[in-house]
Amino acid sequence: MVLAAGGADPTLEEAEVAFGQPDIAQAMACPRLKFIELSSAGYTRYDRGDFRTNMQGRGVAVTNASQVFADPCAQHVLAQMLALERNLPVQLRNQDGPREWRYLEDRFTNGTLTRRRVLLLGYGAIGRRLAALLQPFGTQVSAYRRTPGAEAGVTMVDAAGLPAALAAADHVVNILPDSPATTGWMSAARFAQMKPGARFYNIGRGTTVDQPALIAALISGQVGAAYLDVMDPEPLPPTHPLWSAPNCFITCHIGGGTRDQDENLAAHFLANLAAFGRGGTLTDRIM
């Protein structure tokens, strides 16, 4: 598990470079450390004032592995969006279930991504890659972040413009990270602001969504369908109501995974290590 917290390691005390999920207290106490690469895109446990102050004060560079997971996560969401537009989940469930000939029901409710409006909640490495993948479909992509800047081909939205963006979107993709500020961020009020029947996706973190509110929105039809790769808690218990919520489709936090994940992580780290050694620019630097 790339996100699992690492324990104290006596060899870290002699290291100048660390790769993985080093123990926070130990990393702050190791005077020889000069460079840390985290083996994950998420870095919530490290995103704290004392760690940032310690690393920046000592000149320790810290990177994550966002680029390793950006393409798998973006393609996972794109697959979900296409699946819902093309009625694939209900067709596949039908094959495993009643095997009815759902011609009229599904052929004439199919859609496409062409000219659909997509709102990205969060615009980091995953959001940028997803926006690029959506471009050939002719979608209209907007993205929310707290401090929006100019982005070619993407309409950036701040807090003031968020209600209108939610109301206009056919697909709302949550890519927000876990933090105290984002806990339950996608709330009942924000689900109510969405266009009735719009689809919702979560590839960020489960804690960012008020899950009872999402279930209620699915039951009422305010949210037409949800595709979730992250939930709270994980693993999701078999009796959890998300499993049986109407039009709710779940994958088990596999969005960032690939069969060559470890090789890609190693390549990312080695490229950054080489750049660090020559004083170059580090990819995915967070501190």
Rank of each mutant, 00 (worst) to 15 (best):
L78K: 04
D106V: 13
F69M: 00
A160D: 13
G280N: 03
T63C: 13
L133P: 03
V77M: 02
G255Q: 05
R117V: 11
K195S: 03
L113N: 02
T139F: 06
L214E: 01
G153V: 05
G42K: 00
G256P: 05
A160G: 12
G197E: 09
P212F: 08
P238M: 10
C30P: 01
L88Y: 10
V230T: 10
H76R: 10
P148A: 02
R278F: 08
Q91Y: 15
Q140G: 14
G111E: 04
V223N: 07
D106P: 00
R45F: 09
G197F: 09
N202K: 06
H253E: 04
E105S: 12
G224N: 10
G7I: 09
R52I: 14
A225N: 08
Q193N: 05
A70H: 01
H253L: 05
A70G: 08
G256W: 04
D178I: 07
G197P: 06
L113E: 03
F35C: 05
N110R: 15
Q75F: 10
F108K: 11
E151A: 14
R259G: 12
A61W: 07
P180N: 00
Q193E: 08
H171W: 01
T155Q: 13
S142R: 03
R146T: 08
F51S: 02
A79G: 14
A41T: 14
D96F: 15
I254F: 12
N174M: 09
L84C: 00
T239M: 12
Q67E: 15
A150K: 13
D9P: 05
C248Q: 01
Q193L: 09
F276R: 01
H253V: 03
A152G: 11
R190C: 02
A18P: 02
N202A: 09
L282S: 07
G256M: 02
L88M: 13
P72I: 01
R48C: 13
R115F: 10
A168H: 06
Q211W: 08
L130C: 03
D170K: 03
K34Q: 10
D210P: 07
E85F: 06
Q211M: 07
M194A: 05
E16Y: 08
L92P: 00
G197S: 07
A167S: 10
T147H: 15
N202W: 05
Q56T: 15
P136N: 09
L33F: 04
P237A: 06
T183Q: 15
R145D: 04
R102Y: 12
A165E: 05
E85I: 02
Q75N: 15
W101T: 13
H253I: 00
R52L: 12
G153I: 00
V223T: 12
R129G: 02
L78N: 05
P98M: 05
T109G: 11
